[in-house]
Every structure is written in structure tokens, then in C-alpha cells.
Design a protein around this nucleic acid. Structure first.
Length: 627
DNA sequence: CTAGGGTTAG
């Protein structure tokens, strides 16, 4: 491009026609040639040429595409007779920079000057409206597009649907879609995405099945929609379907990035590895966002080493906030607090500014590793050093930090000093702390708040009930059970799953429907004796039943967690690492039992519960019994 | 010119 500029600057017959300049500005647009553009601008200025509206439009486009929105804005504002083209250029520029209110401001002025919007104007204006989420404004814009006779233009109508979707007006979006005379793949995609974001999975699926032509975005929208609605299985199924050889669409990097969290969610390590290999083969693994998604996938599948490996493969200058956050959270969930802290400091060194998510990761990392004072210091520095607002979730982390360490009074004190109303996560942390430090008074206090805040959460009743049971307070246990019934709380059934050779095997507590039930149960029946021989004492306080000690012990042996581990030991060769995932928090008895199992059978067992990872080796757990 | 996106405590 410089070749275009040099002769122009040196030539004795320097162009005087604004249109010549305009042509060169246009040539510079979209090629990050800011320096050359500025040079040309300066040259023009020295020649005393004031840009007309047409030239200004080209300059705006050049500056906007080169990252200098300020200059673009200045040029727009200093042009005296703006044309519709100039308005379109600046509207496009502001909208791309997410300067939504500026976009609308300019659009209003454009209307005031009685210029018609065209199909280059409305999509950008509507995008800004969508970003702001102002339905009323959207309706006005809709009306305006009708007046200009463009409301059924494919682009404009699709943008209108997207706007209604993003403002939460799904019905209006649907009506418009149904009325459209001509639809585009994008029109379908916009609505599908809207339904998915609204959790209307079935409606999304219906449209997807119905649409005449699907492109890669349609497929990816469905996959990420399933993932975000917690339907990992459906996401993976759809991914497989579209990856078949005869499929007319091919996954791209966005698809890969969208499907990886589904592997993470279901702890499908083998599946995740397969997708990683697939991405490598197709050259789709070089994008930093894909690499970040890989870090998250490996971390959630229990493979911290692979997570770190993928993180290191991201080019240092491309490690953005999300990448750092993912790595910090990975260490935190695996109980590697010191590493989380070290990673945080590296991030600061690298000049990346932390956000709220960084601190939830960092603080929970400190919490899981007992780094109480370090955590408290970071909490204090959030506002003052890093200018990150302390939000409710950060208080929840710090209450957890103090609570785990047994500093219950301080934790309670902090709750009373919170600048906002303490919610369920804060009281939940306190309840857990009361439980693990056997402080019935604190636990009762927290539980009472929780019964009001989230009456449907069975976990709270179970936790308190277990504490009553442990203290032999059977009357209170009965009362709680009554309360549980009257509130018609559904007990969230515990389940665990293990992946063997790429296939997931799911176990429910006490369930006997698995094909190998007999083997599993006989394995588990022999287990207590073996464990008792090396010093195990069952902790029956984790069984929520007012029954004899013997029976309690039995129901413990069939916790889903133990079924999955028994199945794993029976179906893998000696020495294979077992990875088990549980939908609830791991119970104390299972935790103790797995420690023994890891020793007796010489296995490394990695357990992921709702909160974190436990890595059992040689009779010890990575959490140091601190969870 | 419109559509799909990786990180969030307990």
C-alpha cells in the first residue's frame, strides 16, 4: 500500500481533487495502514483541502478500521454538510466500537435532518439498540424502518428479530419471523439463538429441524446452546453428527470452542482428547480462544497437567484476560492455591488487568489451600490496588475462606459488615463451615436463612439434618424431615459417573440396575473388612437415616461414588488412573474410604465433586482433608 | 450490512 502513497506524495502533480484522496483512503481502509492514512490526511491538510462529506466518509471508514475511533468521530463532527453516506460511515464505526449511545445519537440527528436510513443504516443502529436492550427504542427504530419501507428487507428484518431477541421480546421476534416474506439462513439462526438463550430448547430444536438449509452457524448455535443449557450429551451428539464424513458442513474454530465446554461439563476426558486431536488435524487449534477452551476442558476433566500444557502453548502476547482467568480457576479448583497465586502475579506482570472473575478464582484458590491471610490481603487490595469492585460472590469466597479455616466468628462478622444483602451463597459457605467445624449454633443460624432464601435446595436440609443426627438429636431430625415434606422439596439424588474407554457409566446411590451389579456389590461388601484391617472406621454421621448403626453403615457402602469407583477398579487394568465425577459434594465417609482404596489397590483416583477436585494417592488426598 | 464464542464462588 505504501507504493500507492509514495508517488502521490512525491508527485509534482499532486491531486487536488478530493475524489483522488478519497480513492486512496478507501484503498487504505481495512488494512491497518493508520500511519499512511495519517500521512495522507496531513498532506491534504497542508494543501488546505477541507474534506467534503464524501471524502469525510472515506476518512471515517479508514480511521475506524485502523482502530482510531477518536479521529473518525472528530472528522464526522467537523464536517459541515454531512451526507447520508457520512452518517452511515460513522454509525457503522460507532456500532462496531460498541459505542451504542453515540450510534443512536447520530441516528437521531440523521432522522432530524430528514435523511432516510437505508439497509446499511438499520442493521448497525439495531445492533446498538440490542446492546443497550431498550425495547421502546427498538420499537421506534422498527417504526422508522417501516416508514423507510425497509422493515422486510432481509438484513433489516433479521436485525430487527435479533434486536427483539436481545431485548427479551421473543414473541415479537417470532411474529416478525413468521411475517417475513423472504428468509435467510441468518434469520433462522438469529431466532434459534434467541430461543436457546431463553432456555426454550425445544423451540430452538424445532426450528433447527425445520429449516430448509443449515450452515455452520446453525450447527454451532445449537451446540453452544445445548452446552450453555447444561445438556452436554445433546451437544456432543450434534457435534458428532455434523462431523461425519458425508456432512455438508465442516466444523470451524468457533464450533470447536463451543463443544469443548460440553466435554468439561460431563468430565468426558477421552472425548475431549478426541476433539483436541480432530482440531489439530484440521488446523483449528491455533486460535487463542480454542486454546483457552482446551485449558478449561482439560482442567474440568481432571487433567491439570494437560491444562497447563495448553496454556503454555498460547502465545504470551495473546494470553488475554479469559485465558489467565481459566488457568487461575483451574489451579483453584484443583486445590493448588499457591499456583493460583503465582499465576495471578504472572498475569499482573504481563500487564493484563484482572476482573471480578479473576478474583473469584484467586480467592477460592486461597480458600481451598488454607492460604487465609494471603487471600484476605488480596481481598483488601481488590478495590484499592486493582480497581475491581467487590461483589457478592467475592464476599462469598472470603466467608468460605474464613469459614474453612475455622474462623467462624470473623466470617459471621464480615457478613454483618457486607455492603449488600447476604444471599444464599454467603450463608451456604457459613453453613458448610459450621458443618466441618462442628459448630451447631452457627450452622443452625445459617440454615435458617437458607430455608427462606432457597427453600427448594435439599442440600441445606440434609446438611443440618446430618449434624443433628451426629449429635443424636433425633427429634430435630424428624422436624426437619417434616419441613422437607411440607415444602415438597425434591431431594437431589446423588449420582456419580466414570468414563472408561470413552464411554460414561452412571451410578445412582443404592441403584442395582447396572449390568455388573453383582460384581460391584460383592466388591463393596468385601471392602469394609479390608479397610478396617488397615485402620478404617466408618463415619456413619453422613447417612441421613434414623436407623441402626449397622444399616447406616450399609447404605453408606452403596453411595454412588463408591459404586463408580468399584466399577472402575473392576474394569481397568491395575495402575490405571480413575476419574470419577459426582453431582454433589463428596461425603466425608466416601472421602475417607477412597483414601483407603487408593492405598489398598495402589490407584490414583481423581474425583471431581460440585466444588473441586480431589486427587487420591497412597492413602492421601490432595485437599489435605480440607474441603 | 444481519447469525454462532472460551473464564464465575459454594
Amino acid at each position: 500500500m505504501t507504493t500507492l502513497l509514495e508517488p502521490l506524495l512525491k508527485s509534482s502533480q499532486i491531486p487536488v481533487q478530493p475524489s483522488s484522496y478519497a480513492a486512496v483512503f478507501k484503498a487504505f481502509t481495512g488494512k491497518s495502514l493508520l500511519k499512511q492514512g495519517q500521512q495522507l490526511h496531513g498532506h491534504m491538510f497542508l494543501r488546505g483541502l477541507r474534506p467534503n462529506a464524501f471524502l469525510a466518509a472515506k476518512m471515517v471508514a479508514m480511521y475506524a478500521s485502523s482502530g482510531d475511533i477518536t479521529s473518525a468521530s472528530t472528522i464526522f463532527h467537523s464536517t459541515r454538510n454531512p451526507s447520508p453516506l457520512l452518517f452511515n460511515s460513522i454509525i457503522r464505526a460507532f456500532s462496531l466500537y460498541k459505542l451504542s449511545s453515540e450510534t443512536l445519537h447520530v441516528f437521531v440527528r440523521m432522522r432530524y435532518l430528514c435523511f432516510r436510513g437505508d439497509y446499511f443504516t438499520y442493521p448497525f443502529v439495531l445492533k446498538s439498540v440490542a446492546d443497550l436492550g431498550f425495547v421502546r427504542l427498538g420499537e421506534c427504530t422498527h417504526g422508522s424502518s417501516m416508514k423507510d419501507g425497509l422493515d422486510f428487507d432481509v438484513y433489516v428484518a433479521t436485525s430487527l428479530i435479533d434486536m427483539y431477541v436481545k431485548c427479551g421480546e421473543l414473541c415479537d421476534a417470532r411474529r416478525l419471523f413468521d411475517e417475513m416474506p423472504v428468509r435467510d439462513v441468518s434469520s433462522w439462526n438469529v431466532l434459534i439463538s434467541g430461543y436457546m438463550r431463553d432456555g426454550a430448547i425445544d423451540l430452538a430444536r424445532e426450528l433447527f429441524d425445520e429449516m430448509p438449509l443449515k450452515n455452520i452457524v446453525s450447527w454451532t448455535t445449537m451446540i453452544s446452546g445445548y452446552t450453555q443449557n447444561g445438556l452436554a450429551g445433546e451437544a456432543l451428539q450434534l457435534f458428532d453428527e455434523m462431523s461425519r464424513e458425508d456432512s455438508e458442513v465442516k466444523p470451524n474454530w468457533v464450533t470447536i470452542m463451543s463443544v469443548l465446554p460440553a466435554c468439561g461439563h460431563s468430565s468426558a476426558l477421552d472425548k475431549g482428547r478426541m476433539i483436541h486431536n480432530f482440531a489439530q488435524e484440521k488446523g483449528l487449534d491455533s486460535h487463542p480462544s480454542v486454546q483457552t477452551a482446551l485449558v478449561g476442558m482439560y482442567a474440568k476433566c481432571g487433567s491439570l497437567a494437560n491444562a497447563r500444557f495448553c496454556f503454555d502453548r498460547i502465545k504470551p502476547n495473546l494470553r488475554n484476560l479469559v485465558a489467565w482467568n481459566t488457568m487461575i480457576t483451574a489451579y483453584a479448583s484443583h486445590g493448588h492455591g499457591t499456583e493460583a497465586v503465582r499465576t495471578f502475579e504472572c498475569m499482573i506482570q504481563a500487564g493484563v488487568h484482572p476482573d471480578g472473575i479473576t478474583f473469584t478464582g484467586l480467592l477460592s484458590g486461597c480458600s481451598h489451600s488454607g492460604l487465609v491471610d494471603i487471600g484476605l490481603r488480596y481481598f483488601d487490595s481488590m478495590n484499592s490496588v486493582y480497581f475491581v469492585e467487590k461483589k457478592h460472590e467475592h464476599y462469598a469466597c472470603v466467608i468460605d475462606l474464613l469459614g474453612r479455616a475455622g474462623r467462624l466468628v470473623e466470617a459471621y462478622d464480615l457478613i454483618s459488615k457486607m455492603p449488600m444483602q447476604a444471599g444464599a451463597s454467603v450463608w451456604g459457605s457459613l453453613l458448610a463451615a459450621g458443618r466441618s467445624h462442628r459448630n451447631l449454633e452457627i450452622a443452625e443460624l445459617a440454615a435458617k436463612k437458607l430455608f427462606v432464601l432457597e427453600p427448594e435446595n435439599s442440600g441445606n436440609y440434609v446438611l443440618l439434618s446430618n449434624m443433628y443426627a451426629e449429635a443424636g438429636m433425633w427429634e430435630e431430625v424428624d422436624n426437619l424431615r417434616g419441613l422437607l415434606k411440607s415444602q415438597s422439596v425434591k431431594k437431589n439424588p446423588g449420582c456419580s459417573w466414570i468414563e472408561i474407554n470413552g464411554k460414561a457409566h452412571l451410578f445412582l446411590g443404592g441403584n442395582k440396575s447396572h449390568a455388573q451389579t453383582a460384581r460391584i456389590y460383592s466388591f463393596l461388601e468385601e471392602l469394609p473388612e479390608k479397610m478396617k484391617a488397615v485402620g478404617y472406621v466408618p463415619d456413619t454421621s453422613f447417612a441421613l437415616h434414623d436407623v441402626s448403626e449397622e444399616e447406616k453403615e450399609h447404605s453408606l457402602t452403596t453411595h454412588s461414588q463408591k459404586l463408580a469407583i468399584a466399577f472402575g477398579i473392576l474394569n481397568t487394568s491395575p495402575g490405571t488412573v480413575l476419574r470419577v465425577t459426582k453431582n454433589l459434594r463428596i461425603c466425608g465417609d466416601c472421602h475417607a474410604a477412597i483414601k483407603f482404596v487408593s492405598r489398598i489397590y495402589e490407584r490414583e483416583i481423581i474425583v471431581r465433586d460440585v466444588n473441586r477436585f480431589h486427587r487420591f494417592r497412597k492413602g492421601c488426598c490432595s485437599c489435605g482433608d480440607y474441603w
